[in-house]
Design a protein around this nucleic acid. Sequence first.
DNA 1: ATACATCGCTATCAAAAATGTAGCAAGGGG
DNA 2: CCCCTTGCTACATTTTTGATAGCGATGTAT
Lengths: 115, 115
Amino acid sequence: MPAQVPIPGQPVRGSRSGKPIMALFDLLGRSWTLGVLWQLSEGGLTFRALQDRCEKVSPTVLNRRLKELSASGLVCRGEEGYALTEAGQELFALLRPFGPWAQSWAVMLEDMDSD
Amino acid sequence: MPAQVPIPGQPVRGSRSGKPIMALFDLLGRSWTLGVLWQLSEGGLTFRALQDRCEKVSPTVLNRRLKELSASGLVCRGEEGYALTEAGQELFALLRPFGPWAQSWAVMLEDMDSD
DNA sequence: ATACATCGCTATCAAAAATGTAGCAAGGGG
DNA sequence: CCCCTTGCTACATTTTTGATAGCGATGTAT
């Protein structure tokens, strides 16, 4: 039985209430979801191109994530393969600052470990 | 063998390169990580309080997530139980806009389904 | 001191999800 | 027809998550 797509308003993995933020976290908290959104941000990619970008993702999981993201209106099929929808781009806009933040986080962790 | 904590600079689940953003996505892409950060944003919580807030999390997983988040410098133990570190608060600041966005996403999904 | 409650977990086992690899059906080019 | 790429599906294995019970430590009231 394949996993269900988290839908705001309905109980999801981890929340009886189905609060939108919890549904979103359920979706984003699955392996590769964040990575796929990140990779698609620069333009449409074919299934295999996406697979290559995400070095270690199995086709099984990639396909499942793409279906979930499509059902959630974040991804759709464009001329060049899979692409972010408008909503997907909005979400990515929120995600973008994570890039630079992760950099400084990495530096902080190094300092933390060397002490 | 328990799961390892994703560390920037080292290969992680899903990335040979170990780019910080990929390490971060690996961490955030585990079940309950996002939810825990969210719940801790309003102040320190004890283990059991956290368990109650996250309705369905098992102690096994909660404990594992807390260890990972501690090792990653995002969470530490304060006077009132577990709390966000400074870095954790920075990350939450990036996460906060997801709340309102999730609301409008929920509305969009309803419209999408009713058409 | 004893009884009881609460807290932060750990142990154990079952279920679900992810991984790795192989390969198929469809479409295009030569 | 032959060969190549694309978008997957099948299947077996490993990893992760989930559910439940309960232990040892600490505090508090009796």
